[in-house]
Amino acid sequence: MTVTATAAPSGAAHSARVKLLTRLAPHLQALPLWLVMGVFLLIPIATIVMVSFWEDQEYTLAPGFILDNYRDVFGTFVTFSTYVSTLRYALIVWASTLAIGFTVAYVLAFHIRSTLWQMVLFQVCAVPFLTSNVIRMISWIPFLGRNGLLNSTLINLGITDHPLEFLLFSPFAVVLTFVHLYSLFMVVPIFNTMMRIDRSLIEAALDAGARPIEVMRHVIVPLSLPGIAIGTIFVVTLVMGDFVTVQMMSGGQSASVGLLIKNEISLLQYPEAAAHAVILLLTVLMMVWAILRVVDIRKEL
C-alpha cells in the first residue's frame, strides 16, 4: 500500500508494481470477509448436507452415503403437516407485517412534516431491533396470560365473563409475537424506498386529477415494491426458520419446521435433523428466488 514510501528504481518497474498492488489490494481487503463467511457459513452448510447422508448409529455419527434420512423425512405425514403449519404462519405473519409496515412507513415518509421528527420517529421504530427478542417475547405474558391485562380488560368491559384461555400459549400468541418482533423488518426497507420516491411525481399525479387512492395505487405502491420485496424476504425467512417463538408462545402445542429440527437436535438425531435442514434451506431459497423473480431489487443495493 505504501507506494510513495518505497524508492522507485526505474519508472517502468515502479508503475508495474503500483499497478499490481492496486489490483491486489481489493482482493486482500475482501479476504477477511471471505474467511468468516467461508468458515462459518459455507463449510457449516456443506457439513449439514454431508451429514444428511450419514448413518445414525446409537447416538454416534457414522460417515456413509445413505438416503434413509430423506426417506424418513418424506415418508411421514408429520413432515407434510409441519410444513403446512409453518407456511400458514409465514403467510399470516407476512400479510399482517406488510399491512402494518406499509402503513407505518407511509405515515413516516409522507405525513410527518419536519425532517427532524421523521428521523426521531424512524429511530423510535428501529430501536427495538437492537433489544433482546427473548425478552420481547416474555413481555407478552402479563398481557395475554389467564389473569393478564387483556383478559381483565375484557371482563371489566363485560365482553366476556370468564378469562379467555386461548390468548397465551396458542397459535394466536405465536402470530402476535411474530408480528411484534418482525414488523420492523418491513418498516425499515419500505420507508427507505418511499423516501427515494420523487415528490414531484406525486404532485404531477395530483395535478393531473388523480385522487389520493389512485396516487397510492399507481405511484406509491409500484415504486415501493423493492422495499416490500426486501421486507418480505426478511419476514418470510425469519418465520420459516423460527423455533423459539413457536416453542415459547404456543406452549408446545404448535409445530414448525425449525422446532422439528431443534427437537431432533435435542434427541441427538443429527442426520435426520440435517436432512430436514437441507429441505428447509431449499424451501427458503426457492421462496426467495420466487420473490426476486417478481420484484427487481437490484436498484436498492
Binding site: 462459518f40 457459513l41 463449510i43 457449516p44 452448510i45 457439513t47 449439514i48 451429514v51 424476504i233 425467512t237 425469519l238 420459516m240 426458520g241 423460527d242 423455533f243 425449525g258 429440527i261 431443534k262 437436535i265 443429527y270 435433523a273 440435517a274 435442514a277 428447509l280 434451506l281 427458503v284 431459497l285 426467495v288
Partner: peptide, 14 residues
C-alpha cells in the same frame, strides 16, 4: 437469508 437454526446446527456439526 439462511435460517438461524441452520447456522447453529451447521457450526455445531462442523
Amino acid at each position: 437469508i439462511v435460517p438461524s437454526i441452520l447456522i447453529s446446527l451447521g457450526i455445531g456439526l462442523m
